[in-house]
């Protein structure tokens, strides 16, 4: 069904691209209760906008990591070998981590794998359903600066839905205190969905 709406896909994409700047991390505040709901609604907006391939998902519970593959193979599921060059030096050198099977990753490691998989797959939008609760603030800060470094200069943007007010306060320039509607520019999609 998505094939027949290139125009709609384009307008949806333009709308999302103006909302979130490329090469940056944006934070969207959502209350803890509606986190799953908003995450699903955003995902759906991409589906009905015909842009499923523009989206990468980062989710602590539904990781989408194939357990029998190595971390490296998981990162490369949808990209070529050269894509590894996009990894930050520190991660690329960590062959011990890259070669370990992905069946027993900690929530933080899983977050790294999901984020970099989206980045290496050149997905314009990497959408995270919060950050793992198990991560302490220093870990979160380390991850965010790592992610920002990797994002800089790419066409991808990292959008984090979070119920953590401190993250919003820490990044006032890239934060939304209320979840913006992605589907605003494409109201006509409903009848096709």
């Amino acid at each position: 069904m998505t094939l027949f709406h290139p125009q709609m896909a384009q307008s949806f994409r333009d709308h999302v691209q103006t909302l979130f700047a490329p090469g940056t991390t944006s934070f969207v505040f959502v209350s803890a209760d509606s986190l799953s709901q908003t995450f699903a609604a955003y995902t759906q907006a991409f589906v009905s906008g015909g842009c499923t391939k523009a989206l990468a998902l980062v989710d602590e519970t539904d990781t989408g990591i194939v357990p029998y593959l190595s971390v490296r193979a998981n990162l490369l599921i949808n990209s070529r070998g050269q894509a590894l060059n996009q990894l930050p030096e520190a991660l690329r050198q960590d062959t011990l981590f890259l070669d370990q099977p992905a069946s027993q990753l900690t929530p933080a490691e899983s977050l790294y794998v999901q984020f970099f998989r989206g980045l290496m797959g050149k997905r314009p939008v990497i959408l995270a359903k919060g950050l793992p609760a198990a991560m302490v603030p220093t870990e979160t800060r380390a991850f965010l600066s790592f992610a920002n470094q990797a994002l800089a200069g790419t066409h991808s943007r990292f959008v984090i839905l979070t119920a953590d007010q401190s993250l919003i306060d820490a990044h006032p320039d890239h934060s939304f205190t209320r979840a913006p509607s992605l589907a605003a520019a494409s109201d006509g999609t409903k009848k096709h969905a």
Binding site: A40, A41, V47, S48
Partner: peptide, 13 residues
């Protein structure tokens, strides 16, 4: 997958 995504959306909207 596509269908569940659209039904959650309809619930929300």
């Amino acid at each position: 997958l596509l269908h569940t995504a659209s039904s959650t959306d309809q619930v929300n909207s």
